[in-house]
Design a protein around this nucleic acid. Structure first.
Lengths: 344, 344
DNA sequence: TTGAAAGCGGTACCAC
DNA sequence: GTGGTACCGCTTTCAA
């Protein structure tokens, strides 16, 4: 149903004008006399006229709106990104449509389809953990849909990308543990197909190598859905705890894996950091208030949303096709707290 | 831009049929021969045809999508509600469009306008703290737009509503404090114009009355934006701490007010619960892991989203106008933890 | 069984 | 300066 009180046609009838005249008057065309413009605009204002953007986009081929795909808005990092996106988009007169994949490839495909059908002018996307095949996005990219990837990106499509410095985040966190005297550092993370997993792992590995430590294979645990299900985190943690060569510290990635690991360790009665230190990627504002306070790698979510949107708007508003793309890397921030206090 | 590879017209041209025939074939009309149907459907499948829902909704006057308005998705409660909404909506073949007011009346009006223009079939809304005037929603309601309120509702519009048992939540939490020996119980909450504030206050008041305690006026602190800004929470808390007759416990409402209060108390070095007990409404999954673990009133967010959507779909799909409305009240759950351990 | 044409709400080209 | 009209993609009478 259409709940706009009034259409351009109604105005035309009421003022005894043609629709085209009304349309032009509303768009402040030079062709229309000031008198008519005033007449039309006054009437429109009084009757609370609003153009129907669906009709407009059908006609004009643009919609002044951008689509967003994230894994889940429950994740503080993503809700901060979305706030950043909105702050820039609204200022430029664009609306946003938010969708969630819940880490499902099928839902990602469905959402992207839904968004393009709703006639978006551009797409901001962070890939789901299940996504291997990028066909759905490649097709759109080739058709000319402006796309900007953020957070979880891909090499297979050339366009603007915005990430945080995951390598450095992983490196700094690991270095911090090493400096505190921890040597047996395990890593619970997302599946290796998504970019952030590989980047953070690389940082972790580098720091370990520099310390002359070989990482046992069984120290690396992947959660197939990036921690969506408690079970996968529980499994990873239990396996680590059962190792002969039990780790004395864990580096976790993603909000969910980090906070859930903390929860589980507490539940098991394991003393943090004496028996097990923990540092993780998370954007929760509660790191300070956790028990114990949680050392964490913070990503600039809001800024990431802003930057990604600025780049996307550039693509959308560019008169000519763009062939030069950039990958913007934003700094992460390690905040050390009690969960990683130095040994002894 | 339209990034659908192919339109109904393309199919018509390719198969040497008329658009109307193709349209009917795709909709499996009895008028069309099986042979033609097969021809059309095969071609459509091969070429990955998807109808353009914008054009459809322009024509049909419905869009198979529902609009959502919440204050902020950063709030765990609301992201849980949204997940509940999606779970029901998707199953019924409806899409959802999520918008945030950030507790601003202006944004609420703008979002509602944007949603109705995008041709939604129904609206799910939780009012912003700034909203006093309901004109924008009354108008739509009178025009026949199905609306279901949840969480922060209003008496001024008659329709389905879903809330949690805020009275009982407030009552139980207060009762729990009283049972623990706390008597000077303060209350930091949202502004009184929104329903949840009044309902929770009523429960708190009832419990205090039953205990024969008169609540000093200065024990009631309202955060104008429901805790959106840290400053307003800080101010409320500081004022309480400076009172001669300093409270020994606080009941907080909303995720933000609750967790921020905990943070601030910790920061000030105030011992919880010895110097100040705290219990609050929050849906964070971290209540257990906080320092100290936080007694909290949990609201069934996911279920609320589900119920609200079911009611909305009833309204949307109903053949005849609906005149009987219900207000569904879902149970809250008090989980007691260390932040409210009994005195002594 | 199939097709022509109108129309949803706008925009824009082209006449007058 | 104003109006007629075609069109965006699709659905739906009404004719053929």
């Amino acid at each position: 149903m259409n709940f706009n009180t009034i259409t351009i046609k109604d105005i035309a009838t009421a003022l005894n004008l043609s629709v085209s005249t009304v349309s032009k008057a509303l768009r402040d065309s030079y062709e229309i006399s000031e008198k008519t413009k005033k007449l039309v605009n006054d009437y429109a204002r009084e009757h609370n006229y609003r153009p129907n953007p669906i009709a407009q986009s059908l006609k004009q081929g643009n919609s002044k709106s951008i689509g967003i795909v994230v894994s889940t808005i429950e994740n503080q990092f993503f809700s901060q990104v979305i706030n950043g996106i909105e702050s820039v988009a609204y200022k430029a007169g664009f609306n946003v449509i938010i969708t969630q994949t819940h880490e499902s490839y099928d839902l990602e495909v469905k959402n992207v389809e839904h968004l393009t059908h709703r006639s978006i002018d551009g797409l901001l996307i962070s890939l789901s953990t299940e996504t291997h095949d990028l066909g759905h996005l490649k097709r759109l990219n080739e058709l000319g849909l402006p796309i900007v990837f953020f957070d979880r990106i891909t090499d297979e499509i050339e366009t603007h990308k915005v990430i945080s410095d995951n390598f450095k985040g992983g490196y700094d966190a690991t270095r911090h543990l090493l400096d505190g005297g921890y040597r047996r550092i395990a890593h619970i993370t997302s599946p290796p197909n998504i970019s952030i997993t590989r980047e953070r792992f690389a940082g972790y590995k580098k720091a370990m190598e520099e310390a002359g430590i070989t990482i046992p294979d069984e120290y690396i645990k992947h959660c197939p859905h990036g921690g969506r299900d408690v079970g996968e985190i529980e499994k990873a943690l239990n396996e680590l705890l059962l190792l002969k060569n039990k780790p004395d510290a864990i580096l976790t990635t993603s909000d969910r894996i980090t906070t859930t690991s903390l929860f589980l360790l507490n539940k098991l009665g394991i003393k943090i950091p004496q028996e097990m230190a923990i540092v993780g990627f998370t954007n929760t504002m509660l790191a300070d208030v956790l028990s114990p306070s949680l050392s964490s790698v913070y990503q600039p979510g809001f800024e990431m949303g802003q930057k990604a949107t600025e780049l996307l708007l550039n693509l959308i508003l560019s008169k000519r096709p763009v062939y030069e793309f950039e990958t913007m890397v934003l700094p992460t921030q390690l905040v050390t707290r009690r969960s990683t206090s130095p040994k002894n």
